[in-house]
Amino acid sequence: MSGDEALDLTPRAPRSGGRRWVSIGIVAAVLAIIVVVMVKLLGDATLFVYEADAAVEKRTELGDDRFRLIGSPLEGTIVESQDQGQTVVAFSVVFEGVTADVVHIGDPPQLFQPGVPVFLEGRWTPGLPDGSDGFVEGANDGFYFASDTLRVKHDSDYRNDNEERISEAESGGEQ
């Protein structure tokens, strides 16, 4: 066909803008969500994190500042009770040989158990919790960590139950 080389392909009508604006809106919404997520991440990153030994050492300096405490619950220290319909868990955590007493308000996760590290959020509080005579086998040093957030951080070792029992039996049930 002779006219093919110079065929007019100019669009005659503007495309419908609807789909374009919906797509641009989605892109903008995704960008906005990413910004919100970043703000949430950075906002949470402003909370200081201390292992139990450092938190005890800096107790005066920390005052009643909110921070994140890391430690492993000690065997035999966990006491669970109910107060006004809420679960209250009193226990002690240890890190590098230094013990800190904790009172957490709220249900602990299923994995909460001695020896499995926890992240706690809260602040140092002087004295003892109301109605308490002291922490069972805890530090009992006149302060406790009042926590409202408890997260369990399990380690990277995976061993099945049977293996654990066999190794305990082999070591004479020392653990």
Binding site: D44, P108, V152, K153
Partner: peptide
Amino acid sequence: PTWGTYWDWSDVRLV
């Protein structure tokens, strides 16, 4: 059930 929360904003890997 493991950590005690569905989501943790301070967990860098999650975010």
